[in-house]
Nucleic acid binder design. Structure first.
Ligand SMILES: [Mn+2]
Ligand SMILES: [Mn+2]
Ligand SMILES: [Zn+2]
Ligand SMILES: [Zn+2]
Lengths: 133, 133
DNA sequence: TTGCTACTGATAATCATTGTCAATAAGGTT
DNA sequence: AACCTTATTGACAATGATTATCAGTAGCAA
């Protein structure tokens, strides 16, 4: 309800994740510690979740089950991601036809309260050539 | 490599999950215990994973992060699911246009080794009317 | 400046899943 | 049918990401 307080820690997190990759809470915590911040791990978890609730941060679940976070650039509309499994780089994509199609097929089968998850992953160009030798 | 041994426990699991719902390993374990089987939890985990590796069982990750398992009816082709978040019932669906489209957009942006996850969830007709009053 | 209270962080707790390892039993072989 | 090899089992401990505690701290509105 009340807007979140802009604490030193919250500012540091927002600053850190502005670089565009998807990383785990623990990985962001390590970056912040490496950059000299004495921020606590629990605070990183709490703040990332708070930002995600506000739509300022995107979340995705990795292959190993960890939640990954990244700054959201496309605030306005519902969208999905094409993410590199190796370096975490991601691009935002939208799937207008899929959105409509999924709602249609689900309600045709009697389902309500329809939701969907769509994530594309791969190896980005840089990682593809690097891992290729 | 060698085919899996058809143990009493494996047979009991296959029998139990033939009823079509998506449930967690722990939930399947409870069903089995309730039905009189003295099977161990670790065995349920291992066997479900083994069956999933063989393509006999489908897996999906729930909202809370648990892995859900169900018997796979459509063995032959790659497919996805429309699942009820309330009772676990699911139907298998295929998305021929999506499969091709996702590969196209990802490779157009320089990505290789492309994979995707697509899951549709909702409330099935029965659960919709029940929760509605 | 003061006061209220949200926020922080060290730490313990949670909980799904996996690892350990001695005992067991598939199932192929005499 | 008795035998052997070894995959499988299950009680239990360990892992690891995430969440809960709670006393101390610091936004920020008045
Ligand atoms: Mn976004
Ligand atoms: Mn299936
Ligand atoms: Zn990459
Ligand atoms: Zn249902």
């Amino acid at each position: 309800m009340t807007p979140a307080r802009m604490t030193r820690q919250r500012a540091a997190i927002i600053d850190a994740i502005s670089d565009g990759d998807f990383r785990s809470a623990q990985a962001w915590h390590e970056s912040l510690r490496g950059a000299g911040s004495a921020i606590g791990l629990a605070t990183v978890y709490r703040t990332l979740q708070s930002l995600a609730d506000d739509g300022d941060v995107d979340t995705v679940v990795s292959e190993s089950g960890e939640t990954l976070y990244r700054w959201c650039a496309a605030h306005t509309t519902h969208h999905h991601h094409l993410r590199c499994r190796s370096c975490g780089t991601a691009e935002e994509i939208d799937l207008p036809s899929f959105e409509q199609w999924s709602r249609a097929i689900a309600s045709a089968r009697g389902y309500t309260e329809i939701e969907h998850t769509v994530e594309l992953t791969g190896l980005c160009h840089a990682c593809s050539t690097e891992l290729d030798h």
